[in-house]
Amino acid sequence: MSEANKTPNADKPKRRWPLFLALAVALAGAGGGGAWWWFGRAQAEAPKRAAPKPAIYHALEPTFVVNLADPDAPRYLQVEVQLMTRDPEVQPVIDLHTPRIRNRLLLLFSQQYSTNLRTRADKERLQREALAEVQAILKAETGKPGVEALYFTSFVTQ
């Protein structure tokens, strides 16, 4: 080819970067839109968790007062206990089996040593054990634990 036939811009490479930039923006937008649609659909299909029913508290009256198992000196534990359930049908079952529940808790409390009831962790351990006792009774009677939590509303050792 002769020098006269060449165009003045023939030596410069063609600038295609605006085309590549537009293509990259379009792909990023399509990917973002697809992700937004996919995750939005997955959230819509996720089952909604129902709000828990309100708590129902049942006080075990009268207050528990037991001799602790300490061999060196007489020690006492005085504790008030409340049971928490969310099922209104459990309340009459608790009322019916209160003597049995109180008996199991009295036996559990009287096996404790004062040295094992000093820290928060010790009290929480006893709380878990007491809850397990109550749930075992209710499960034997109804087939379900019935009680969700057990709370100490007063706790005195002497």
Rank of each mutant, 00 (worst) to 15 (best):
Gln43Cys: 00
Leu126Thr: 07
Lys144Tyr: 05
Ala35Val: 10
Pro8Thr: 09
Thr119Cys: 02
Thr142Pro: 01
Ala28Gly: 09
Lys53Gln: 14
Pro8Arg: 07
Ala140Gln: 09
Ala59Glu: 14
Val25Gly: 06
Ala10Cys: 08
Ala28Thr: 14
Pro8Lys: 05
Leu68Trp: 01
Lys12Asp: 11
Asp72Phe: 12
Phe155Lys: 12
Ala73Glu: 15
Pro99Ala: 02
Gln158His: 14
Ala10Leu: 10
Arg102Phe: 01
Asn103Asp: 13
Asn5Glu: 15
Gln82Pro: 00
Asp70Trp: 03
Val25Met: 08
Thr63Glu: 15
Lys123Leu: 10
Thr153His: 10
Arg41Asn: 12
Pro88Gly: 00
Trp17Arg: 04
Pro92Ser: 06
Val90Glu: 04
Asn5Val: 14
Asp122Cys: 08
Lys144Ala: 12
Leu60Lys: 05
Ala42Val: 10
Leu117Gly: 13
Arg118Gln: 14
Thr98His: 00
Lys12Ala: 13
Ser154Asp: 15
Arg75Lys: 14
Ala140Met: 01
Leu126Met: 12
Glu129Thr: 09
Ala44Ile: 03
Val90His: 04
Ala69Leu: 06
Glu148Asn: 09
Pro47His: 05
Gly146Thr: 07
Ser2Met: 12
Val134Lys: 01
Ala50Phe: 02
Val134Leu: 02
Met84Tyr: 00
Lys139Leu: 10
Lys6Leu: 14
Pro145Met: 00
Gln82Ile: 08
Gly29Tyr: 05
Ile137Trp: 00
Ala121Arg: 11
Thr157His: 13
Ser154Asn: 15
Ala59Gly: 05
Val79Asn: 03
Val79Thr: 14
Ala55Ser: 13
Val25Gln: 01
Pro145Glu: 02
Ala132Glu: 12
Pro99Asn: 02
Lys48Thr: 14
Arg16Glu: 14
Pro88Ala: 02
Ser114Cys: 05
Thr153Trp: 06
Arg125Pro: 02
Glu129Ser: 10
Ala140Gly: 09
Leu23Cys: 08
Gln127Ala: 04
Pro145Val: 00
Trp36Thr: 06
Thr7Asp: 09
Thr63Arg: 14
Pro47Phe: 07
Glu89Asp: 15
Tyr76Asn: 03
Gly31Ile: 05
Ala136Cys: 00
Val156Ser: 11
Lys139Val: 00
Asp87Met: 01
Leu96Phe: 11
Val93Leu: 11
Pro71Thr: 05
Thr142Glu: 09
Ile101Gln: 03
Gln112Met: 10
Tyr76Gly: 06
Leu108Thr: 08
Val93Phe: 02
Leu77Ser: 04
Phe20Tyr: 15
Leu106Tyr: 11
Ala30Lys: 02
Pro52Val: 12
Tyr151Gly: 04
Gln43Asp: 12
Arg75Val: 08
Thr142Phe: 01
Pro71Gly: 04
Trp37Ser: 06
